[in-house]
Design a protein around this nucleic acid. Structure first.
Lengths: 143, 143
DNA sequence: CTTATCAATGAAAGTGATTTCCGATAGCAA
DNA sequence: TTGCTATCGGAAATCACTTTCATTGATAAG
């Protein structure tokens, strides 16, 4: 699965006539080997720990490439930090976000998706994306 | 309904020991007499047209107070602009956002709300808010 | 294995939205 | 009226990104 994403990204790089660089591989490894919802800051600091002179701008630029290549997706939970999550083909999910500790749980619900489609249609909208987030306190923080 | 919100805000001001000022009243009137999803910029410019030396900072500060008082709610549609919408007691709705023209349509769906509650519960989360936005092309733009 | 080309990089400067700072002003209680 | 202090406006600061630019390095041609 990690290999598949690496492959996808390398194919994308080749298809676009871009260059395969050490930094891009480094950032890709960092992204793939970490938690599914990382902020750019987090990834940057993690990388920086091992490779002190990697640039902030490079991380931003590369994450944007990940989005374009389809292996990552940008998400925002309203805390002013952009996060990136892994994209798994044919899979869609929404998020439960803990407002105390920041934990994120993914869930998928077929019934909600269907209702959303019906609502959009009834208003004449042609929907291409949607966002559903439930904000609350996670089981751990409730104690 | 506008009167009710003015009352609510004045009560809030009094309860918190804050002061009732001309600017706050001005901004409140501007907010209440306009469209339901305004950006801070829009409100600021509209106010500025009538009262040239009202400060940007004051508008920000005051809108935050509106949120705290419960008469307004901050929303973000991912275009980098924070918007504020009116809060009507006991009413909840979600949004259909046109990604071409920016039009926003509100909708409410009881069934979705129930499903959300069930999902949150099954994961042990205590949910206090949620956000559901459908992004697409509105009927007008589809032509 | 060179060498030329031009994308990619890192550091720093620039943006745009929002926030803070600060001296002046104005509610409001005494 | 007076005094206290919240609030104000304008400017500077901050925050999360984005762009710029001189240098570096990947790649392809020779």
């Amino acid at each position: 699965m990690k290999q598949a994403k690496k492959q996808l990204f390398h194919d994308f790089i080749a298809r676009k006539g871009l260059k395969s660089t050490r930094q891009r591989d480094l950032i890709l490894d960092g992204f793939l080997s970490n938690d599914r919802h990382m902020s750019i800051e987090e990834l940057y600091l993690a990388l920086r720990a091992k490779h002190p002179n990697i640039g902030y701008a490079t991380v931003y630029r590369t994450l944007k490439l990940f989005s374009e290549s389809g292996i990552a997706r940008e998400i925002q939970f309203g805390d002013g930090q952009t996060r990136f999550e892994h994209v798994d083909e044919g899979e869609h999910h929404d998020h439960l976000v803990c407002t105390r500790c920041g934990a994120v749980k993914e869930f998928a619900n077929e019934a909600i998706e269907k209702l959303q489609a019906a609502i959009a249609e009834s208003h004449g909208y042609l929907v291409h994306t949607h966002k559903l987030e439930l904000y609350g306190i996670c089981p751990k923080c409730r104690k």
